[in-house]
């Protein structure tokens, strides 16, 4: 970054000590904005590429002190609580400052590369010991290619291992800028059937499959992650096709089946949205074990849970 203004990115969370976003203990930086709308998305606040207001109704005292603070008149009283006109709200956060019980929060903040790197560097001793590092997740990091790639480069310059999580639904130019700057790519593969993929995520999978092949050809280590959503993605046919496709990827490290979980459901309500999957239960441990062993039988190296890569842990 020579001279000019610092690059900023829209970040909605920064989580230390993550154990499920790549090898070792990691800090995960969640970038806001995603081209996909997966039905099971556990981070609905990651989807829109703009700050958003979250409303925790159970904390709201109904005092109404937020109402006059909204410059756009997006707030109103509703049944002793408040209602939000989502089309008018621009997430400016004026109301948040007026809310004593903390029922309002804005998700999404523009952060500079430097402050994110500083925050990530705090756990450097843990990264070294565990073979961990920083993971950019989302949303879709490649929607903010300049910020994402700069962030990854800066982390690397500090000796921090970097990973980027992507769903790959992005033109190659932007995506390649980002993945090129990472030590490891965590690549989501939601469904192998193009039409089904579109039904489940809102976009077809042609570009996604093509991009995965390209990453393979670039030689960047890639761990493919397949969401196991009961009844939607976990048919033997789909999983087998996914494994077969992945085995053709040159730099494939392995495949990680990711169990669907409903922990993100309450967030839909806070954003004023309906959760599309109702009360779909998560897959059982036995089912997951069977999937993992099937995948192994088909020739994949399967990753599950916390792991670290050989030789990545510091000694002594």
């Amino acid at each position: 970054m020579a001279g000019g203004e610092e690059i900023r990115g829209l970040v909605f969370d920064l989580q230390r000590c993550c154990t499920h976003d790549g090898p070792g203990l990691r800090t995960t930086v969640f970038l806001k904005g995603c081209p996909l709308r997966c039905l099971w998305c556990d981070n609905p606040e990651s989807q829109r590429a703009a700050p958003e207001l979250m409303y925790f109704e159970e904390r709201c005292s109904g005092c109404g002190s937020c109402l006059p603070r909204c410059p756009r008149g997006a707030l109103e009283r509703r049944n002793g609580k408040i209602g939000i006109d989502r089309s008018a709200c621009d997430g400016c956060g004026e109301c948040v400052r007026a809310c004593a019980p903390g029922a309002l929060e804005v998700v999404g903040e523009r952060l500079g590369v430097r402050e994110v790197v500083e925050a990530a560097a705090r756990d450097l001793p843990f990264y070294r010991r565990s073979g961990g590092g920083v993971t950019l997740s989302g949303g879709e990091p490649s929607l903010q290619p300049e910020f994402a790639s700069e962030l990854l480069r800066e982390c690397r310059a500090r000796g921090i291992h970097t990973a980027v999580e992507t769903a790959g639904c992005r033109e190659w130019e932007a995506l390649s800028r980002v993945v090129r700057s990472a030590d490891l790519v965590l690549y989501d593969l939601k469904h192998m059937d193009g039409r089904r993929h579109e039904e489940l995520t809102g976009a077809p999978n042609g570009l996604i499959l093509e991009n995965l092949r390209r990453i393979g050809r670039m030689g960047i280590p890639v761990l493919v992650r397949v969401p196991i959503v009961p009844g939607l993605t976990d048919s033997e046919e789909n999983l087998r096709a996914a494994v077969e496709f992945c085995l053709e990827v040159d730099s494939l490290l392995g495949i990680e089946p990711l169990a669907y979980h409903p922990l993100g459901v309450p967030k839909y309500g806070r954003l004023g949205r309906e959760y599309p999957l109702g009360d779909l239960p998560p897959p059982g441990e036995e089912h997951l074990r069977r999937i993992a062993s099937e995948m192994e039988r088909w020739g994949a190296r399967v990753f599950r849970g916390y792991f670290s890569l050989p030789g990545s842990r510091s000694k002594g």
Partner: peptide
């Protein structure tokens, strides 16, 4: 267990 081991050791 493995993650806790790394965490405590650090």
């Amino acid at each position: 267990v493995e993650a806790l081991t790394d965490l405590f050791r650090t």
